[in-house]
Computed example of a mutant assay.
Amino acid sequence: MASESRKTTKTIGLRLTPIEHKLVLDAATSVGLGPSTFAREAILARASAPVSPRRRKRDGLRIQVGNWTGEANRLGNDLNQLAKHASQGGRVDAGALNALQAEIRALHEAVLTVAGSSG
């Protein structure tokens, strides 16, 4: 989500050799940035332009939480559809309900496994 005070709407293309590309990726990773943010900040610094504050790159756990949130949302939508169908007098397939229940358990186990290993 872009800030209201800073809208980045213009792009500049950049071609790199495979070696240059790897060097940029490694340098960006070493300071916890994505390659685009790293390149943007380097270009602006070279142009003596102010560099606006940035968000930190999401670490592995934050990425996992984002993935789990999306998965939980999808499962919730599936459950909502089954409940709506049932409330309208439809028959809910037991296999679909069991599959949804298994997916919810798997998601729960994945979260518990990571939470247990990080605590």
Rank of each mutant, 00 (worst) to 15 (best):
R56Y: 02
L25G: 03
A45Y: 02
I43A: 11
L14S: 02
Q64Y: 09
N73Q: 15
P50L: 10
S117K: 15
E103W: 05
M1F: 10
R105W: 13
A115Y: 03
V51W: 07
A28G: 07
S48D: 11
G13D: 04
L75Y: 07
P50M: 09
G119V: 08
I104A: 13
A42D: 00
L33W: 05
S48P: 01
G13Y: 03
A45E: 14
S118I: 15
L61Q: 10
R46W: 08
I43R: 02
R56I: 02
G119W: 04
S5E: 14
M1N: 15
S5Y: 06
R40M: 03
R62Q: 14
D93L: 09
L107E: 04
G89V: 03
R15C: 02
I104D: 02
K22M: 00
R105S: 13
A96S: 14
L100A: 11
K22W: 00
R56Q: 06
S30A: 14
S48K: 14
V92L: 10
K7H: 10
A39Q: 00
N77Q: 15
H108C: 14
A110F: 03
A83M: 04
D93E: 12
G119I: 08
A115L: 12
L33G: 00
H85A: 15
P35M: 11
A83L: 09
H21I: 00
I12F: 07
N67S: 10
S118T: 15
N77S: 14
R56F: 02
A72K: 01
G95R: 05
L75C: 03
G90W: 10
G90I: 08
